[in-house]
């Protein structure tokens, strides 16, 4: 059965290549170009609504260690009027199964604040190209 598990090898996969590039640029922006508030960079996603390829939309995937955190932020965000969708965490993001929360990248700063207020632990914020693309990442 182990042989049939998806691997983390991204070579030769165009979607994952785009994902890697987007993530790298995102992290660089997050780390170096964003103003800092209370020790954390204020998120202002440089990719929001900027297509990786013409016509391609970038969503952000919030990842969590615990399902409970993902569900908590999902319910909390929806109660505050944000558009969120629970999704499987793409294997390329972390070498484990799990649930992620797909959100508009432009909402991330608010959602981070909401998570902080509600004591919800997030693992990572990752921009992903076009999550309704059928060629998207393989899942656990």
């Amino acid at each position: 059965m182990l042989e049939s598990l998806p691997t983390n090898n991204m070579s030769g996969n165009l979607t994952l290549g785009c994902f890697q590039l987007a993530r790298l640029l995102f992290l660089l922006g997050h780390a170096f170009f964003l103003p800092v508030r209370e020790g954390h960079p204020i998120f202002d996603c440089p990719f929001c609504h900027v297509p990786a390829h013409p016509g391609e939309k970038i969503d952000c995937c919030l990842t969590f260690g615990s399902h409970a955190d993902a569900f908590a932020l999902h319910e909390c965000a929806r109660a505050h009027g944000y558009s969120t969708r629970i999704s499987t965490t793409p294997r390329a993001i972390q070498a484990s199964c799990g649930v992620g929360l797909l959100v508009e990248c432009g909402d991330v700063a608010h959602l981070e604040e909401l998570a902080r207020r509600e004591r919800i632990d997030m693992e990572d914020i990752v921009p992903l190209p076009c999550q309704i693309d059928p060629r998207r990442d393989k899942y656990c």
Partner: peptide
């Protein structure tokens, strides 16, 4: 647990 499947040990966060 449905999370962190590649970790050798049980997650250290709750409730998992």
């Amino acid at each position: 647990t449905g999370t962190h499947s590649y970790d050798r040990r049980q997650p250290d966060f709750y409730p998992e």
